[in-house]
Design a protein around this nucleic acid. Structure first.
Length: 106
DNA sequence: ACGGTGACGCTCA
DNA sequence: TTGAGCGCCACCG
């Protein structure tokens, strides 16, 4: 995939890898950073996702926190929760049910 | 278990 | 060039 205007390589890598996560599964900011080769850049990943220019093509709602909580979302975690539920992810009080099981392994 | 806090990698002003 | 600020994480009490 070629680089988009006004975006960095780092951001492009984040979006590319996020697209590998299938429906009904999730990944974490930390895992995303690690698969890119940046082992402490979880925060930077969140930063990149908040600027995702091709929503909803890139499923940025499938990126969550490493402890199974939902994490942030540009238009509200309510929306993110609804989206995830519509894909079959079960969420209880802001915590992903069976988080370990639906966590996508790169 | 649980809230506060320091540190981190990356962008943008 | 520098500093602030983030969709986080790990470590403390």
């Amino acid at each position: 995939m070629k680089k988009q205007h006004n975006s960095t390589e780092f951001e492009n890598k984040v979006w590319q890898n996020l697209k590998r996560v299938p429906r009904g599964r999730v990944t974490t900011y930390k895992a995303l950073a690690e698969v890119l080769g940046y082992f402490r850049a979880a925060r930077a990943v969140g930063n990149a996702l908040s600027k995702n220019p091709w929503a909803p093509k890139v499923p940025c709602h499938r990126a969550v926190k490493s402890n199974g909580q939902i994490g942030g979302y540009r238009s509200g975690i309510r929306k993110k929760t609804v989206l995830l539920k519509s894909e079959g992810v079960r969420i209880n009080d802001g915590i992903i049910v069976d988080f370990k099981k639906i966590l996508y392994k790169f």
